[in-house]
Amino acid sequence: MNNRKLLAGIDAGHVNTKAVLMREEEILGYAVVPTGFNPADAAEKALNNALYNTGLPLSQLTGIVCTGIFGETINIPTLALVGSVPEHVADARGAFFLNKNSRTVIDIGGNITKAVHYDSNGGLLDVIQNDKCADGMGIFYSTMVKAFGVSEEELSELALKSTKNVSVAITCALSAESEAIDLLCQGVEITDVADAILRFIVQRVAAMCTTITLTQEIVVAGGLAKSKALMNHLPVLLKEDVKVLNLPEYVGAIGAVITCGGGKNE
């Protein structure tokens, strides 16, 4: 048993840094922390939290595999860097590992949204990434959560209770927020505004997806995948079935480890 490697996958995103611990394709633990200004610090913190959650000592760790937008900046001197994986590759491998039938993953991140198409081995085929005006969908969601003084789950729950179809401006998160506030100021129910916000995000994602081959099965990654309301709207707009992955926010981190052999011995 001890000759099997324990690897940590670290996905350093614009907003959050995610860490997973894996041994021979088995996920042992995970943790997420805000990236903040220092991705390396955040990576170390996420890793320590993941270790703490699993009860494993740092000394057993063979090394780390990095991915994500800040992946290349991560350097933990005490740990061997086993590999650095481009985020699209990590997304494809991770999603494929979590669901062997999947061929497309839609990843709604804090700042970037992408759809990745891969083959029956999880090999990257094509990618589409959001237009500039659609930057920051995840950040927008968190901002609205904070503005409404609710939790992420509660925002989703509110949206599910919506009875009236209202809309916010669709060009960007800034206009959307400005109009969401305006709707509230007109006295529109918060449930309907919450639904408009989620529909806005889903529309932006779905619009982006129309230029790439969406091959079944389609899976969704990123923290927003946990929003039930969002997942209700997405298949309707895509006119395709979609599945939420297990541990949606850790897909990249998991994929990074898998790309580097998943902790198996060579």
Binding site: P86, Y118, N121, G123, V127
Partner: peptide
């Protein structure tokens, strides 16, 4: 990403 995709394409499809 574009460069990655072109590399992959050259190798015969995937990276």
């Amino acid at each position: 990403l574009f460069v990655q995709l072109m590399e992959a394409h050259k190798k015969g499809g995937v990276c």
